[in-house]
């Protein structure tokens, strides 16, 4: 026996925005058991898409300095490997390089991480996932980009499917040049990042929140198959 549907799908208009909208994200008119009808928009109702707000640093200078020191000493890296550089991240935890010495630890979930390492070229498909992970991280958050691919496109500079400049899509704190950079270069990048955080310049999350519209326009320009809320944390 077929289950009776209690909703009616509303076909979207043929505007440019809805060109790649997936059927499961169409708006639908639901009839509740009590007979009332209401409209459900999966993209807005099932997710919270409030815009990010900038969070001001602690007003007491000394406290903020101390907290920045703590942040710089305890960097939790999101294990999100893109491109060829993720193979350079794993040796960091081995006895030869041992990034634990500097308080760098890997964390498997974006909620608990502070640092996202974009380790190489990003195709448009991966960029969508990277942005989603980045937005789920909690402020203050930092981004480190490895390799020439993230700086100017590298050897994929004329490719139809890989981005050229990462800093148009998310605020980047430290670039590590190379193709690919060795783990030693990564450690140097961590030192540079620590210096930035201690100086109070690691405000990428606030920068993202303040220039949110610009970043979002850039992202939506290339990710046409958006199919998620504008900001999902």
């Amino acid at each position: 026996m077929a289950e009776e549907k209690n909703y009616k799908i509303i076909q979207p208009d043929n505007s440019e925005e809805n060109k790649f909208l997936k059927p499961e994200n169409y708006k639908r008119e639901v009839t509740a058991p009590d007979g009332n009808t209401f409209i459900v928009d999966p993209l807005n109702d099932y997710f919270c898409d409030a815009k990010p707000q900038p969070h001001a640093p602690n007003t007491i200078k000394v406290v903020e300095k101390f907290l920045n020191w703590a942040r710089s000493q305890s960097i939790w890296v999101l294990g999100f490997g893109t491109g060829c550089g993720s193979i350079e991240i794993y040796p960091l935890m081995t006895p030869r390089f041992d990034a634990y010495r500097f308080g760098v630890q890997q964390r498997p979930t974006p909620r608990q991480s502070n640092l996202m390492i974009i380790s190489g070229y990003l195709s448009v498909k991966t960029l969508k996932r990277a942005i989603r992970s980045y937005e789920q991280m909690q402020s203050p958050k930092f981004v480190m980009a490895l390799g020439s691919c993230t700086i100017n496109g590298g050897m994929y500079w004329d490719s139809y499917n890989t981005i050229n400049r990462l800093d148009h899509y998310m605020p980047v704190d430290v670039y590590v040049a190379g193709c690919m950079p060795r783990p030693e270069a990564l450690l140097a990048g961590f030192m540079e990042l620590k210096k930035r955080i201690r100086e109070g310049k690691g405000e990428g999350a606030n920068q993202y929140a303040e220039n949110f519209d610009w970043y979002k326009a850039n992202q939506k320009k290339i990710i046409k198959d958006w199919n998620m809320p504008d900001y999902n944390w």
Binding site: C48, P52, Q53, H55, L67, A70, R71, Q73, S74, T94, P95, D98, Y100, R101, G103, Q105, N114, Q138, S139, P140, A205, W233
Partner: peptide, 28 residues
Amino acid sequence: ARVGKRIGVPFYQPYIDLIKNYAIRSQF
């Protein structure tokens, strides 16, 4: 860490992790 022939975290690392986690600015 020594068992794995690494140097390992500083012994005060749990304190720093704790301070950092309590100092995260955005919550939901």
